[in-house]
């Protein structure tokens, strides 16, 4: 099981309606369906992954996220989830807006470009970072917008998006005191539960960390 599924699953209310953007082979939705009794759909562009979703009994809609979420009405989902996809889309800002138009809350995870290993590789080794959570070389990476925890939170503040919950973990999805004290330096992956003030499902604490 992917460790981030566990964290996300604990954030999602049982029986919720969920839209998973860039759902891949449907693993997260199948997990949430089996453990949190959610209903919903995945959105995916890769034909082979769509077949995997269908085989797993996960509803999947073939669509290009870059074109927005016009197929989905306002506030039709409790959660719109995007795991490790935000850094791979061109229209980051618009997609974030779309997520919170369609869903009452958004759950976003991304690799933190501010992690000390990334910083070291640029600052001392002088090359683009290649780390476990960002395994590609600069010329073949699907990522087009790399950003840090600090960058993301600044964007949320700029757009008036509330951060209901945050988890900062390493690539095995474990958290420790260091990551709590210096998330942007020591965290490899960041997970956020977001929303607009008036739409919140539940107001959590902005610095809740997973406990293992």
């Amino acid at each position: 099981m992917r460790a981030d599924l566990d964290i996300i699953s604990r954030w999602v209310q049982p029986g919720a309606r969920v839209l998973d953007l860039g759902c891949g082979d449907g693993e997260l939705l199948a997990f949430l369906r089996d453990h949190r009794q959610i209903s919903g759909y995945g959105v995916e562009i890769d034909e082979a992954k769509i077949i995997s979703c269908i085989r797993a009994g996960v509803n999947v809609i073939h669509s290009d996220l870059e074109a927005g979420l016009a197929d989905f009405g306002d506030n039709t989902f409790d959660y719109v989830i995007m795991t490790q996809t935000l850094q791979a889309v061109l229209h980051t800002e618009r997609l974030l807006e779309e997520m919170l138009r369609v869903g009452r809350e958004g759950i976003v995870t991304f690799p933190n470009f501010g992690h000390w290993r990334c910083r070291m590789q640029i600052a001392w080794a002088g090359h683009m970072p290649v780390v476990k959570v960002l395994p590609h070389a600069w010329y073949n990476t699907p990522n087009v917008h790399l950003f840090t925890i600090q960058d993301f939170e600044a964007l949320c503040q700029h757009k008036g998006i509330r951060i209901w919950q945050r988890a900062v973990v390493d690539n095995a999805h474990r958290a420790n005191l260091g990551m709590r004290l210096a998330p942007n330096l020591l965290g490899e992956l960041a997970l956020y539960r977001l929303g607009h003030e008036q739409n919140g499902i539940q107001a959590g604490h902005s610095d809740v960390f997973p406990t293992h």
């Binding site: 759909y41 034909e47 769509i50 077949i51 999947v60 809609i61 669509s63 197929d71 989905f72 039709t76």
Partner: peptide, 21 residues
């Protein structure tokens, strides 16, 4: 086909959609 899918989504029906190249 997308019109069909959109209407099904709006009706909250169980639907999958594949656009084959």
């Amino acid at each position: 086909s997308q019109e069909i899918v959109r209407a099904l989504l709006a009706a909250r029906r169980q639907v999958s959609y594949a656009r084959i190249t």
